[in-house]
Computed example of a mutant assay.
Amino acid sequence: MKLLLWDIDGTLLASGGAGLRALEQATESVFNLPVPADLSTIDWAGRTDRWIAAKIFEKYDIEHTPDNVTRLLETYIGNLPAELSRTTAVLPGILALLTEVQQRNDIAQGLLTGNLERGAKTKLGHFDLWNYFPFGAFADDSAIRNELGPHALRRAAAHHDRTFAPTDVWIIGDTPHDIACGQIIGARTLAVATGHHTRDQLAAHAPDAGLDDLSNSAEFWAVIDGD
């Protein structure tokens, strides 16, 4: 059995800036900023929500306390539904692939994402995709993206009552951080150029495979099933 661990933003969903807007609104309202929040300068693609919160505090000289993290991220998640309705869409081919995974008994799948679990559920639930993923690793587990892999593997093992060898695990994502997160646990990595990085930019980080997008299921399965 092979294990697929999916990123969300830029891989499963095209957010159209929904998360950025929701977080900017949260930053302004929670901390009463005198000017509109501009978080576009933070390089947050492939990062975790908790890492991003730390960078926001640094940028606006806000005390980095557990209470401030909670207030910011709770407000952000509350803002998400309205913003998701404005611009977010499921990327081409995703629904077909997720359905095909469920029809195979030799493939397991879960999430490996920088979103908090509640944020992931909000985003995927908006498109009725949440139930495709019975387990995952989230920003709740660590603010550091490269520390999420072992959490995902542990939950996959518990859910399926078996251990997955690293070479049977595929990390699927759209940023160099997804690639690094897979490499650090010895997993295989599939980089897809559906986010903010081109295929050539992703290839520079040495993923095991790369695709322009996931619209061609035959192309996807040729990667996953190939040895």
Rank of each mutant, 00 (worst) to 15 (best):
M1Q: 09
L4K: 02
L5G: 00
D7L: 01
L13C: 02
A18T: 01
A22I: 14
V35H: 15
P36H: 05
D38R: 11
I42G: 05
A45M: 15
W51V: 02
F57I: 09
F57E: 08
K59D: 10
K59H: 15
D61M: 11
D61H: 14
T65M: 05
P66H: 12
L72C: 11
L73E: 06
T75A: 10
Y76R: 02
P81I: 08
T88F: 14
A89S: 14
I94G: 00
A96Y: 04
V101N: 01
Q102A: 10
Q103R: 07
R104K: 09
N105Q: 13
I107P: 08
G114F: 04
L116R: 08
D128S: 13
W130S: 09
Y132S: 05
F133S: 01
F135K: 11
G136C: 01
S142M: 05
I144Y: 13
G149V: 00
G149M: 11
G149S: 07
A152F: 01
A152H: 02
R154Q: 07
A156T: 03
A157F: 05
H160V: 12
D161A: 07
D178Q: 08
G182Y: 01
A187G: 02
A187P: 01
T189Q: 04
L190W: 02
A193V: 02
G195M: 08
A203Y: 06
P207N: 13
L211D: 04
D213Y: 06
D213L: 01
S215Y: 12
S217C: 08
E219N: 15
W221Q: 11
W221K: 12
